[in-house]
């Protein structure tokens, strides 16, 4: 092999490598941080586990004993239409306040008009064998007998429940047709800006009351439990109404 044969390869190498290096350099300089703070509510009150009695839309009393869900496939869409995707799977748990704060330290500077995320775990990850961290099956969010993650779990107790122990269990999962219950949440974020080396905050409210009301009101005496993907079609669509943006604070 002669030297002149190496020339085209070298040129190609430079063409691809040099710009990507400089691009990364400038991107990093202009990166800022976004904190997405999820706050759990029931109607207009902050959610409290166990001790507070709530009423569903049919006025049936109940207490909530657990509320947790996966957030994944986060996309932030800029006003110019460009989208930034954020890797990672986050398990947000009412019992663990730290879990409800998602920190994204390396977001490109710019104006962002929308956030999109999946409630649940995408089908590829559901089929890839054993996972760790937030997806560790020991977190109790994996169905073992019909492999698949539980995307969202709301447990409780109601005198109206006809299940053993008057329990309520709403476990929404299922990534295969015809029971694909993955739902993408799209929220407008008017005025959200990321500035380099500063921290912006996006507050998102999750209203557990909406999970049990429109468009599919849950009657505790008829449906105290949803623990199969093929029974979750109605309540899965309520997930689309769970979330709203409550606060946008830009770093300066």
């Amino acid at each position: 092999m002669r030297l002149r044969h190496l020339l085209p390869v070298t040129i190609l190498f430079c063409l691809f490598t040099v710009p990507s290096f400089s691009f990364r350099e400038t991107e990093r300089k202009k990166d800022g941080e976004l904190v997405i703070q999820f706050n759990h509510f029931f109607g207009d009150q902050e959610l409290v586990l166990d001790s507070v009695t709530y009423r569903n839309s049919l006025q049936q009393p109940f207490q909530i004993t657990a509320f947790k869900y996966y957030v994944s496939n986060i996309h932030l869409v800029k006003t110019d239409g460009k989208s930034v995707s954020v890797p990672g799977y986050f398990l947000l748990n009412e019992e663990e306040p730290d879990s409800r704060k998602i920190q994204l330290p390396n977001l490109p500077e710019g104006n962002y008009s929308r956030i999109e995320f999946l409630i649940g775990v995408d089908s590829a990850r559901n089929c890839s064998g054993i996972q760790k961290d937030a997806l560790d099956p020991a977190k109790g969010m994996l169905w073992a007998w019909n492999t698949g993650y539980i995307f969202l779990k709301l447990d409780g107790i109601s005198p109206q429940s006809t299940a053993p122990g008057h329990k309520l269990e709403y476990h929404i999962g299922g990534f295969k047709q015809p029971n694909n219950h993955l739902r993408t949440i799209r929220l407008e974020t008017p005025g959200l800006q990321i500035h380099s080396k500063t921290k912006s905050t996006l507050g998102i409210k999750a209203d557990a009351a909406n999970l049990l009301s429109a468009p599919h009101p849950i009657d505790f005496s008829k449906t105290p439990m949803v623990v199969d993907a093929d029974k979750a079609a109605g309540i899965a669509n309520n997930v689309l109404h769970l979330f709203s943006v409550t606060r946008i604070q830009n770093g300066l």
Binding site: N126, C127, S128, G129, I130, P137, L142, A144, W145, N146, T147
Partner: peptide, 19 residues
Amino acid sequence: MWDGGVNHLDVFPIAPITH
């Protein structure tokens, strides 16, 4: 499984362990 419910060799043992 007889019903094909489990989709990966790695996660299979969780089913009999926790059943």
